[in-house]
Amino acid sequence: MTCKHKIRDDVLKVRSGCNNAGSSLLPALHTTQQNMGWLSNESLTIVADTLGLPAARIKGVATFYSMLDMKPTGRHIIRLCTNIACMIMGADRFIDILRDRYDLLPGSATKDGRFSLCIMECIGSCGTAPAMLVNNDFYHGLTADTLTEILDRYE
């Protein structure tokens, strides 16, 4: 099955479980991102055509939400919280560690496509800060050592 057909079939599946085209849009974008890794203009056009919604609306929505990725991501997405509780507990130095160890900068991916780094606002782990998500896995109470130990497990 071509990518185009895969996107269309999955969006139609999502659509059939929703009230209308509008309320199926965010679920459709989630499923497309999961399949394709990120949301390219081509993917957005297919979603728009499949749902019968204007392409401009789809793009407007996709660019609004910070967890919809509008450029290619690494194989593993590190979402690092740096909000107040995490900041107090030392999250900022993790940015330096990621830069030094993996040559990874906020908002970009490593050259080998292994990681990308997204700086997050609060991810709801303030009591066990600092915290991050790697893909869908939650890690908290991080130290410089555990951070790299955890990331080394993601190939």
Binding site: N83, I84, E121, C126
Partner: peptide, 11 residues
């Protein structure tokens, strides 16, 4: 959608 920094009560 609890997102207010410092809030993790609903989790």
């Amino acid at each position: 959608d609890e997102g207010e920094p410092g809030t993790f009560k609903d989790r």
